[in-house]
């Protein structure tokens, strides 16, 4: 505070002091008036909102579940896209596993034997640890076949922590023809 006062030069200070002495009562009333006026302005604003209920912005969340639309880019959780034939596009290349900063994804591969008797690499389990995921989207970007994407779910709470470790490939699913 002291340095603050120093900046006002001595002459100016004197002038202000003289002015203050002469104008004391006027300034006092002016202060009171301006102060009250600023308060009234604030009161008017809050009164406006008190009486205009259409300005209310509350979203009643669990009630509006049915109408709640999340943007299609919203990052909720990673899912492996399956089509109607229970086929997915994951080749088990582990690009997502490598891209993940938190070791959220673990891909366990197996070798399928094709009808021709050839060995072919395929995923056995696509393990996804939702509890470790930070929704950074790096795995989705890394995936060369667009096999995984972000789902728009966001209600992830469970009673048991183990439920958050998910296997993303569905039972009996296999890789789509033609995806390399």
């Amino acid at each position: 505070m002291q340095e603050f006062k120093k900046e006002v030069s001595f002459v100016e200070k004197n002038k202000i002091a003289i002015k203050k002495k002469n104008m004391f009562i006027v300034n006092y009333i002016k202060d009171v008036f301006n102060g009250v006026k600023s308060l009234v302005v604030g009161l008017r604003r809050t009164m406006y909102y008190f009486s205009h209920h259409k300005e209310i912005i509350t979203e009643q969340y669990p009630d509006n579940r049915d109408t709640l639309v999340l943007p299609d880019r919203f990052k909720g959780e990673v899912i492996l896209v399956h089509d109607e034939n229970n086929e997915h596009a994951c080749t088990g290349c582990t690009a997502c596993e490598l891209a993940c900063p938190n070791a959220t994804i673990k891909i366990i591969t197996k070798f399928d034997i094709s009808p021709e008797g050839k060995k072919k690499k395929a995923i056995d389990k696509f393990v996804y640890h939702l509890e470790l995921c930070t929704m950074c989207n790096l795995c989705i970007v890394a995936c060369p076949t667009d096999a995984i994407k972000m789902a728009q779910t966001f209600e992830h709470s469970v009673y048991n922590r183990a439920e958050l470790t998910k296997v993303l490939n569905k039972q009996g699913s296999k890789i789509r023809e033609g995806v390399e």
């Binding site: 999340l70 943007p71 880019r73 919203f74 990052k75 930070t134 929704m135 950074c136 989207n137 790096l138 970007v141 972000m150």
Partner: peptide
């Protein structure tokens, strides 16, 4: 932010 980046607070939209 949510619409373009997919998240409201921790966007991670820049690479």
């Amino acid at each position: 932010m949510e619409e373009t980046c997919g998240a409201r607070l921790t966007m991670n939209y820049i690479v």
